[in-house]
Design a protein around this nucleic acid. Structure first.
Lengths: 253, 253
DNA sequence: CGAGCAGTTGAGAGATGTCAAATACAGTGG
DNA sequence: CCACTGTATTTGACATCTCTCAACTGCTCG
């Protein structure tokens, strides 16, 4: 199945055949990018929009003291910079974590698509708003959860996001993220992340080796992490069910 | 001069007379709400959009252990829930911090406005994206800054945001936020916030009494907090200057 | 086989949290 | 104007979490 992005959207929206086709046609220009390379830099205002097809990337910022802070993970099906054009410039950078396949779509093509297909427009907005909701949840997590629960919460989130694009089998997924990167994500030290992972392993909450994460008992991990998936907005709402084709509410905001 | 929202937008966009008028006409239904009251609750899907006219509010979430986490401050000129309709339900709540004047605009009116006025549409998108950029910055702050710098950073941010809506005079603004609320914002304890504030006062970085915050030397505080205002996207970009009326890029995404 | 990351572990330091109490302040009713 | 009540602020002593520094181990890849 080609497009994780379409797969993700179709969990919640019924795309028409025309929309699916248009999306696929727009996604022909694929770039292969090795791991640990910048996709987009702070200050850029790219004329293409980037969509992750394969691999992991992250949004990050470097602080004056040299520290790095990772503010988001981008997994297959996620857009990197759908809205930069409105802001005029990236206020952070995006780097690959492992080697990635990235689709580049000209900005005008995106504009045409959203102008022509209301459901698609809504779906793209939805994707952006979910990213924002994830950000809020991370903020809560950092502020009010202990290190072990933060890690567990993140693993639960990735489980669900990767499930939505078919990258989970048997509660196992590949996690191409280093302990130092995890630390930069959660505001911890790689040393401490290491200890926390040991704890989680000892409690048999996770099995993690060679970049493969298995969760023996998902329910238990969710309880431990105090994970509530509603912020991912994966379930269709009443409104969606009422107006599946989306046309009644096809306003452009 | 009625609308802080228009004031904020006009820093960056040139609204036409018609747009200004349309906005004002849409803003007639004003509600007065006492402090510490929920404006919108998690799970709601309100049919009106709320715009803060006066006073402070915040986005927050309550955790199972009873802890509260504040994820955003909403000041005059900020929208509370412009996009809920796309997600279908609020995934967090919004409460007033002090008594507020809130404008309610029917969702359809907003849709009509953005459909009729491309610049306005862009401006609303811009406002939403700035909120997201703030969120990212807070995340970085929590992860990688010490408590005193976090507090200082927040004070710098509020200075600039309030300045943009004319609520700062002589580097002084009213800060209707309790130390416990600050703590819930920064992921600290109110006890610790108190000590940090004492530190900042001793270093003469801030003067804070009776909900009035003065910053004797803004430059110095910014350096201390390591504050870079670019994430607020207050300065117009080259693109904006090129196409002030916005019509060339009036796509609807 | 060696070089270079990534992961692991230990000992001690520092920042922030917890608990508990005292003080200041704002609004209310007499 | 005062006493009264509840909330916000302030302070101290101590506990805990996470960081720092430093070393060691184990992969992976050339």
């Amino acid at each position: 199945m080609a497009s994780p992005f379409i797969q993700k959207l179709e969990r919640r929206f019924s795309l028409s055949e025309a929309e699916r086709r248009a999306l696929l046609q727009a996604s022909t220009k694929v770039r292969l990018i090795p791991g640990h390379e910048d996709l987009i830099r702070e200050g850029d205002d790219p004329d293409h929009v980037h969509l992750i097809q394969k691999g992991f990337a992250c949004r990050y910022k470097i602080l004056p003291d040299g520290g790095r802070s990772i503010m988001a993970y981008l997994v297959p099906g996620d857009f990197c910079d759908l809205h930069v054009s409105v802001l005029g410039a990236m206020d952070h950078s995006i780097a690959t974590l492992n080697s990635c396949e990235v689709v580049q779509i000209p900005r005008e093509t995106v504009a045409d698509l959203t102008a022509s297909y209301p459901t698609l427009n809504r779906a793209l907005q939805w994707a952006g708003l979910v990213d924002e909701a994830i950000l809020r949840t991370w903020l809560v997590s950092m502020g009010r959860r202990s290190a072990d629960k933060q890690v567990a919460h993140l693993f639960c989130e990735l489980l669900m996001r990767l499930e939505a694009v078919g990258l989970v089998t048997g509660n196992t997924y590949t996690l191409p993220i280093t302990q130092a990167e995890l630390a930069d994500t959660l505001g911890l030290t790689s040393v401490h992340v290491n200890r926390v992972l040991r704890e989680l392993r000892q409690q048999n909450l996770i099995v993690l080796q060679r970049r493969e994460l298995s969760i023996p008992d998902v329910k238990r991990l969710k309880v431990f992490a105090d994970f509530n998936p509603s912020y991912l907005h994966l379930e269709p709402t009443q409104r969606d069910r009422r107006g599946q084709n989306g046309s009644e509410h096809a306003h452009n905001l």
